[in-house]
């Protein structure tokens, strides 16, 4: 990976407020999340720091609390879920007690996200280009024609082959991979510093999944975007991340540099995730010690 400071200087429109690259854009400290209705703590203390151009991965099965952690950082926890401990700092601001107005100004321009099922985040009766352009008009306060121009540029930046054509299409005319590209375009439209990809490639074919992961890596290198990649698949996270957190039932059972976690896993659960790939996956053939 190239140095972050250089990349950050390059595209001016992607950096609303220059911050020293070493300073974290997202800082999660001992965050605890509780279900107030059930009176139960679901996430028992998650911590990580994310600096520009870096990627943190969160691995865990459904119900492990990985999505709740992301939602807390986005200020979109479901009803009666609350952060009951620790702190989250976004671009230097403590988000506890943020008002709706403060969230509205930060979301999209500082932190943004893409999720698993892209079609459900787009209106099926509005052309997809217009939906991306709306984000640009609202966030950047530009006129319609300029928003359209910028949208087409963004659609090109996410490697959609014919951006002008895609601009005028509806969701049903696009494949899952293309829709996810459109949503990534919308997510980065206002030049956020952090992008959360929560199971963003889970529903896609493997070749398309690789295209989207490569695209995220490109964006990170070109713009200094910081990524949080959430997946149930350790290998997906390993491909892209500098640091990995393994979550199980709301507990961080393992955390460290990706290489360390993959090659010297300490927790039994991490070893299970690795064994799954080594015994029942491609790694069965690719791993040097395994001979089929």
């Amino acid at each position: 990976m190239s140095t972050l400071s250089e990349k950050l200087q390059a595209p001016a429109e992607h950096t609303a407020k220059p911050v020293r690259p070493s300073q974290p854009v997202l800082s999660v400290r001992e965050v605890r999340i509780s279900d107030q209705a059930a009176g139960r703590e679901i996430v028992h203390g998650v911590s990580f720091d994310l600096t520009p151009g870096r990627t943190v991965g969160i691995v865990g099965e459904s119900g492990s609390g990985k999505t709740l952690t992301c939602r807390a950082a986005l200020g979109i926890l479901p009803a009666h879920f609350e952060v009951t401990g620790g702190s989250i700092e976004l671009d230097g601001h403590d988000i506890t007690g943020f008002s709706t107005a403060e969230w509205t100004s930060l979301r999209g321009s500082t932190i943004s996200a893409v999720f698993q099922d892209p079609a459900s985040y787009l209106n099926p009766s509005i052309r997809v280009g217009a939906q991306v352009a709306e984000v640009i008009r609202v966030k950047k306060k530009v006129r319609r024609r300029e928003a359209r121009r910028q949208t087409i540029e963004l659609l090109r930046a996410v490697h959609l082959r014919d951006p002008e054509l895609v601009y005028g299409q509806y969701t049903y005319e696009l494949s899952g991979g293309m829709l996810q590209r459109v949503l990534i375009a919308a997510a980065i439209a206002a030049g956020p510093r952090v992008l959360i990809a929560d199971e963003a490639t889970t529903a896609l074919d493997v070749t398309v999944q690789a295209e989207i992961l490569d695209l995220l890596a490109d964006l990170r290198e070109q713009t200094g975007l910081a990524l949080v990649v959430v997946s149930h698949d350790l290998a997906v996270v390993a491909q892209l991340c500098d640091e990995v957190l393994v979550l199980r039932q709301g507990e961080v059972v393992e955390q460290g540099p990706t290489h360390e976690v993959l090659h010297h896993p300490r927790h039994a659960y991490t070893r299970l995730l690795i064994a799954e790939h080594e015994q029942y996956g491609l790694d069965r053939f690719l791993a040097p010690e395994e001979d089929a």
Partner: peptide, 26 residues
């Protein structure tokens, strides 16, 4: 044979599949 297809894929599409599949050794 499974090992041959994965270790020495011949068709470009197979090669893309193998290189796209998430592995711990990417």
């Amino acid at each position: 044979a499974a090992a041959d297809v994965i270790n020495t894929p011949r068709h470009p599409y197979t090669r893309l599949l193998v290189r796209s599949a998430p592995t711990l050794h990417s």
